[in-house]
């Protein structure tokens, strides 16, 4: 089991918008979107620190978050069960209680 994680599988999370400046691994198209945590991968070096020559410590927890495609793209052309899964670090995620919480 991976300990001390802020989120668990099944939690709804919203991706922060422009949370950091500089190098990051959070694509713009998921920023501000709400998805569900579907996997907790554990601790990995923080790429935002490593990109500037550090060792990436402290580690960040890496999650897999699942989004409905219809929530990501206006006029998504496929069926509503299509999803997109993406790997995101903990500091980019904030807790939400419902999908459309403002």
């Amino acid at each position: 089991m991976i300990e001390n994680t802020k989120f668990q599988i099944g939690d709804l999370v919203r991706v922060r918008v422009n949370h950091t400046s500089g190098h990051c691994r959070t694509p713009q198209f998921v920023q501000g979107k709400t998805g569900e945590v579907v996997a907790v991968f554990g601790q990995f070096p923080n790429p935002e620190q490593r990109a500037y020559g550090s060792n990436g410590l402290p580690h960040q927890i890496l999650y897999q978050v699942c989004f409905d495609q219809t929530d990501l793209w206006v006029n998504y052309s496929g069926p509503e069960q299509d999803t997109l899964r993406i790997d995101l670090f903990e500091h980019w995620l904030e807790s939400v209680s419902t999908k459309h919480e403002v």
């Binding site: 069926p79 899964r85 993406i86």
Partner: peptide, 12 residues
């Protein structure tokens, strides 16, 4: 059949 796209952004 649901299409599930994986964007491998990090260490996986």
């Amino acid at each position: 059949v649901a299409v599930r796209v994986h964007d491998s952004t990090a260490d996986i």
